[in-house]
């Protein structure tokens, strides 16, 4: 296949990922695409914020100023969310959940800044979901041991093992496709409005951006993190009985 999924197909409605330049890597043609650039921009923004926050918290004052207030609010909200969902396991996972929350949220709302959201590329969301999947699997083996995992796989009867296996593998697929398709639907509808009825697209497309970029993006970020926490918690708690 010459092109990746949804990449650089020729059509008038332009919501595709474009390849910027390509290079050969072990005989494979690897493309550097607009998604990579957008991810780098998002990462730079996050990195700048974290460095500034780190420097601020090192010299924290008794009476916080504006920026310190914002940093404390973000950290408290994220920690509170993880604490609500995971209980006493929260302290081990608050870092990971907070990181992917910030990244996905900023990626989703980067459509407001004129970027093509990096999460509208299946590569990004699949990577995020595979990270979650490996954490779930690792926690399963850590807390239930091999015997518990095998017992869970053969849940009512051993003949159900293939179906349980499919159920396990479906977790990253459904998580990644959910995030990808939600963000992509927003990108496609905005592209349709801006190209097909460009003469009438004055001011009111802002409402589309509010719904698809801000509302839907925030909800999907929350859903992704919530599902991650639920699955990880389930993997841990199944081992405690």
């Amino acid at each position: 296949m010459e092109y990746g999924i949804l990449m650089a197909a020729d059509s008038e409605v332009d919501f595709m990922i474009h390849g910027l330049f390509s290079y050969k890597f072990f005989g494979q043609t690897v493309w550097i695409t607009t998604s990579h650039v957008c991810i780098l921009l998002v990462m730079l923004l996050l990195l700048a914020f974290s460095i500034a926050a780190n420097r601020k918290i090192r010299h924290a004052t008794e009476v916080p100023d504006t920026f310190q207030n914002i940093v404390e609010l973000v950290v408290e909200k994220l920690d509170g969310m993880v604490e609500n969902a995971m209980g006493h396991n929260a302290k081990y996972f608050a870092n990971y959940i907070g990181t992917i929350f910030c990244f996905i949220l900023l990626s989703n709302i980067s459509g407001l800044l004129g970027l093509r959201p990096p999460t509208a590329d299946y590569g990004t969301t699949l990577a995020l979901a595979l990270m979650t999947f490996s954490i779930i699997t690792f926690q399963k083996f850590k807390h239930q041991h091999v015997s518990g995992v095998l017992k869970g796989l053969c849940d009512p009867w051993p003949i159900w093992a293939p179906i349980n296996l499919i159920g396990d593998v479906a977790v990253p697929v459904s998580m990644s496709l959910r995030l990808f398709a939600n963000v992509l639907s927003g990108v496609v509808i905005e592209a349709l409005v801006y190209t097909l009825i460009s003469k009438f697209a004055v001011i009111w497309p802002a409402a589309l951006h509010v719904y698809f970029d801000l509302f839907s993006g925030a909800i999907q970020t929350y859903v992704f993190c919530m599902l991650t926490m639920t699955y990880v918690n389930q993997a841990i708690e199944d081992g405690e009985y």
Binding site: S174, L177, R178, F180, A181, N182, L184, S185, I219, Q220, Y222, V223, M226, L227
Partner: peptide, 15 residues
């Protein structure tokens, strides 16, 4: 949360 999860099957069709 429940609605966003239920939305997935529709989004499969969209994809």
């Amino acid at each position: 949360l429940g609605q966003a999860v239920a939305e997935t099957t529709g989004l499969y069709g969209l994809v």
